[in-house]
């Protein structure tokens, strides 16, 4: 059964018509009521008057371009300002139509969304909190990464320091040869190998002749240069498996694993000759040498003492020569 159409001024929806220049041409009673205006007051007013400064900007930069470019706007959130200055959240749909005299007109339907607005506010703040949490998490990660990097750097430094200490603990700083500690460890190890495998080991003990005179006559720097030159000659004339060490002021030793006495004598002679033939030292240098091959059950001290005796014999026989150690006395 046909009924009279509903009263447009009482529909639960705000309706508003505008000219292109923003002048309101018509508004329904519902909208006027929401905005606390008398219905007849709205026509002739500018839309600006229903908008806060922010809403004006939004209207100009968002809603209006939609209407102008696309002919319609849907579900645009905008706050309309009541006569008493309250900003009321609204959802707006808009269409562009031909008005009287072919003039472009914007028709807007306006829905108050107070409850939804509160809900959205909560969602928005939840999202902002989530974003903030993510940002904080990223920040924490960045800090953690920084801490990790700094730890890594510290570890690298420690490693470098350890290497340096290790080097310092095993190396004679003047000549770069192994030091006495390494000599003793290496010889001890080789004696154990001899004990177990009957693999021979020999050592050549050398002492620079008249070194005290070199120091006294030419000074310590020259003395140091002599020691360095001897070390270099030793390094250059031994095998990879041999270990050369400086074990006292002007006392050097070469441990020769897997080497019997006669072979060690050949090497010892060669070393002595090469040292005597050195031309890059400020003063001529010779060494006296004692060579010994270890026998099973000897300890470091035993074999060293025998080599040392041979060395003294070489000194006594006129220096710049090599003497073989006597076999150990039977026990």
């Amino acid at each position: 059964m046909p009924q009279a159409p509903p009263d447009i001024n009482r529909l639960p929806c705000g309706l508003l018509s505008l000219q292109q220049d923003g002048i309101i041409t018509w508004a329904n009673g519902t909208l006027a009521h929401w905005l606390e205006y008398e219905p007849r007051k709205l026509p002739g007013m500018r839309i600006d008057q229903l908008l806060s400064p922010a809403a004006r900007m939004f209207y100009l930069t968002s809603l209006l371009p939609l209407l102008q470019h696309h002919g319609h706007a849907s579900e645009v959130y905008l706050r309309l300002r009541s006569r008493h200055g309250a900003d009321m959240p609204m959802l707006i749909n808009g269409d562009v139509t031909e008005g009287a005299g072919g003039k472009t007109r914007y028709d807007l339907s306006v829905m108050a969304i107070h409850k939804r607005h509160v809900f959205e506010e909560q969602l928005l703040s939840a999202r902002q909190m989530a974003e903030q949490a993510v940002a904080e998490q990223e920040k924490a990660y960045a800090e953690l990464e920084l801490a990790r990097q700094s730890l890594q750097e510290k570890q690298d430094e420690l490693l470098a320091l350890n290497c340096k200490l290790e080097h310092m603990a095993t190396t004679d700083s003047l000549t770069g040869l192994a030091n006495r500690r390494v000599f003793e460890q290496t010889l001890s190890h080789q004696l154990a190998v001899l004990e177990r495998n009957q693999t021979p080991v020999s050592l050549v003990l050398m002492d620079v002749d008249h070194f005290k005179q070199v120091n006294d006559t030419h000074g310590h720097p020259v003395g140091d240069a002599v020691l360095q030159a001897v070390a270099t000659t030793l390094k250059d004339n031994i095998r990879e498996i041999d270990v050369a060490a400086r074990i006292g002021g002007e006392e050097f030793v070469v441990i020769m694993p897997d080497t019997e006495l006669e072979e060690a004598v050949v090497v010892g002679e060669r070393l002595r000759e090469r040292i005597a033939a050195m031309t890059d030292t400020p003063t001529p240098v010779t060494v006296s040498s004692g060579v010994a091959e270890a026998v099973p059950a000897e300890d470091v001290s035993d074999v060293f003492v025998r080599a040392d005796s041979a060395l003294y014999q070489a000194k006594a026989d006129g220096r710049n020569r090599l003497r073989k150690a006597a076999a150990p006395a039977p026990r």
Partner: peptide
């Protein structure tokens, strides 16, 4: 306020 209004429109 304008930025807030833009934010609200993203809900759509």
């Amino acid at each position: 306020d304008l930025l807030d209004m833009m934010e609200h429109n993203y809900f759509e």
